[in-house]
Amino acid sequence: MDIQQNPYEWMIKLTPQKEWIEGRGTLLLLAMFFGMGAGVYLVFSVFDNIFGMLVGLLIVNLLFGGLHLVYLGKPLRFWRMFLRPQTSWISRGLIFVTILNITGIVEMGMIYWLPGTGIQMVFKVISIILAVLVCIYTGFVMSYVRAIPFWNSALLPVLIVVHEILGGLGVVLMLSKINGFGLDIELIEHWSTMLLVVSAFLLAIYLWNATYSMRPGPQSVLVLLRGPKVFSLPFWIGVVLLGIILPLIVGWYSYYGGGVSSYLLFGGIVSELTGGLGLRYCILKSGFYAPLLPI
């Protein structure tokens, strides 16, 4: 595979994007991973659990938002990023996060003081919609980039949102096992397993679809499937084995096979979360620009 190895091959061979994956770009990879905080908020919001919702908001603000902020070259100017929602998905995302914080806090107050009322339901629906928007916007940030055909797919935001909700369900399961919370754990396990099957199916379609995209979209898929190892190992071991197969086996036994030990369930959840991180790594790492030369 003709991938740029040396500086003089820049834009002559397939040139990988580096800004969002190498060096400080690693912060962005982690930030994207912690977008699942919105998934945590969403799941706990369905169950009207104030503590869990707060955990979700903290993950969104401190880890997701904080890592984004640290990544910026001029973090003190972050407020300027509110100014261009007409065209920029980063701007839209920041606005979604801000509104989610406001409606989330109001909803938590409603659950505490006015539980079961109509107004609480209204805020619940609004904040769930906003949590979905926070989950989905990182996908749109990437899919908007036409220069990287592998990312330029309508399926990417869907894949990302499914993974962020899946990560959220994993964290909720973990917290529920530790703290109880009175949640229906079996139901969450069932959702988690179903969503895992959906995400595997979506990933397959996304990759298959990318093979029909503009050059170098198909090459991105090839490097993930066949190597070099820096691309294929995280994909097969991280995404497929840890992210799909192991959690599916654990989930299946836990729900349909009469239950598994807490340790095994924890292992399955950690494995699933690692797979989510691996997926984001693979997508970011295999984003290539089409060469400008030869003409």
Partner: peptide, 13 residues
């Protein structure tokens, strides 16, 4: 602000 979204979006790098 140095978010580098423009660097990513430029097809000419």
């Amino acid at each position: 602000v140095g978010c580098r979204y423009c660097v990513i979006a430029c097809p000419y790098q």
